[in-house]
Amino acid sequence: MKDATLKKQKKQPNRLSYKGAWKDRLRKFVFGSKEKEGAGKQTVVYILLISIGFVYLYPLLYMISRSFMTVSDLLDSSIQWLPTEFYTDNYKNAARAMDFWKTFKDSVMVAGIPTLINVVICAIVGYGFARYNFPGKKILMGLLIFSFILPPQITMMPTYVFYTDMETWVKETFKLENFQMIGSLKSFTLPAILGQGLKSQIFILIFWQFFRQVPQALIEAAKIDGAGHFKSFARIAIPSAAPAILVVFLFSIVWYWNESYLTQLYVVGTTQDAVSSLSTLVVSLSTFETSYASAASQSGGQMVSINENIKMAGTMLSILPLLIMYFVLQRQFVESVDRTGITGE
């Protein structure tokens, strides 16, 4: 009697006992249940991620592979990805046309100096917005966002005129013959000092968001201990804001590096009378064909005429410094958005 019930109990848990059970199990394995993700779904996600990842990297891979090809490789339709030999002349020619080392130094300067100013000024302004409840704060915040949405083209002409006027004024009053606004780095540093640098508005908002989270009690404690406004900013707010500073620094340097439109207008100079000795890698890429032609004519037949592979090598050269920086500081970049607290706490 007992044995029979035991047998019955043993038999019941067996899932294969009812009809079509294996179908259910298969479905569970592929699509997953509410508790567990199915293997099929996982595979689909991985396939999608890998293929999109490939699509993302495709232009980069294309660029790298093309930049090592000779002209005959380019014309040979049987060659798709791998060049026949490790050919570096494209890079040599492109580097010579761009005057790589000098331009690289210029780029570091053009991106670096406004970035440092940006970090300092945006931190101060962000702290002002976060800590104090002065009248008219909401309106000013609205204007901050408005000035972010406003395209720089609309203020470009008057600013350009303002800089040229300033140039002549300084030249006349202070007897400085070599003073230049347009065609020098000053035209980037001045807006940065006044908190209107490249995308400074975002950085101010990042600092604002960050300093709002600094506990008020800490600052009050410092006040009781006799710290003034600036001291509590420098000694308490700034040391706790290291992640925000890092984020602002990285993004600012990347955006300044990649900016070509305003750099060409203000720093490099477009008109004949205001051409400077400064040039950045990205700007020199946009005028690559003309600069290559002039370099080729100067070299006296040593450089081959321009082709797609050389253009790709030039493009590669202009992004290479940032790529290296990205792979060294990858964690900081990828986790940057989490750290800004842009999504709120």
């Binding site: 101060i124 002002g128 104090y132 409840n133 002065f134 009248p135 000013l140 204007l143 901050l144 006044l194």
Partner: peptide, 16 residues
């Protein structure tokens, strides 16, 4: 004290 806020945002205000 809140007036100090203007001091902090002064550079940006001039720029604006």
């Amino acid at each position: 004290e809140n007036m100090m806020g203007y001091v902090f945002i002064l550079p940006w205000l001039i720029g604006l």
